[in-house]
């Protein structure tokens, strides 16, 4: 969980920085998007690697949850736990985030939910990612799904990021406070950065 978590966090950081280029205008975002797709071999190699990491993270989560549920066969009448709510509900937030990622890929990558995105082209007759994002977030239901998705993602990260340091043995008393605070801040930054795009489009701050 820890190792796949580190790789997913690295991807997420780059993904957020990529998204934020929408605030630099259509040209910046589109040329970044075209740069990512410069080589189909590289693109698909990267996509398959990411899917592999996600699969490892999900399969490990399922195996651990089954094992851990079995290790406490009878529950307490009303347990009073000192553990944070986020840390106790990682599987729930994880399942919701997985469903959100599936929707997100069908929406913006495969265009299954919106086949008309295929027809959006910029002045160089290349795919118009900027136009697609503007069109995609004009629907309030889609915006709501994205906001809930990234909220749950940040909730998941609020425990997951510091947890991966612990699992990999890279946390001690001296660094614990710093790691926990930085992890929490990271979760907030990811929420702000990820939610900024759908919110800005919906409230017509960019069009």
């Amino acid at each position: 969980m820890g190792v796949s978590g580190v790789l997913l966090v690295a991807f997420l950081t780059v993904h957020m920085l990529g998204n934020l280029q929408i605030f630099l205008g259509a040209h910046a975002l589109n040329s970044y998007a075209h740069f990512l797709k410069i080589s189909p071999e590289l693109l698909w190699g990267f996509r398959l690697a990411m899917l592999g990491i996600v699969a490892v993270h999900i399969l490990a989560a399922i195996a651990l949850t089954l094992e851990n549920n079995g290790a406490r066969p009878v529950d307490y009448l009303r347990e009073k736990s000192a553990a944070s709510y986020a840390s106790r509900t990682m599987i729930v937030s994880g399942i919701i985030v997985a469903l959100f990622i599936a929707y997100h890929l069908l929406h913006f990558t495969a265009h299954v939910t919106n086949p008309e995105f295929d027809l959006l082209l910029d002045e160089q007759a290349k795919p118009d990612v900027y136009g697609m994002v503007i069109a995609g977030f004009s629907n309030p239901l889609t915006v709501a799904i994205y906001l809930i998705g990234v909220l749950l993602l940040s909730w998941h990260l609020s425990h997951g990021v510091s947890s991966m340091f612990q699992s990999l043995g890279l946390r001690n008393r001296r660094s614990a406070c710093l790691i926990d605070s930085a992890a929490y801040l990271y979760a907030v930054v990811i929420f702000a950065g990820m939610a900024a795009v759908p919110a800005a489009v919906y409230f017509k701050l960019i069009s």
């Binding site: 651990l64 000192a82 553990a83 947890s163 612990q166 043995g169 890279l170």
Partner: peptide
């Protein structure tokens, strides 16, 4: 048949002797 650690740190709060989860990070390492 013990489960695996998901770093909730409920153990540290319950420990009557104040053993910290730093030792868990050390064991992982």
């Amino acid at each position: 048949g013990f489960g695996s650690c998901s770093n909730t740190y409920a153990c540290e709060a319950a420990c009557p002797k104040g053993i910290t989860v730093d030792f868990i990070a050390k064991l992982n390492r």
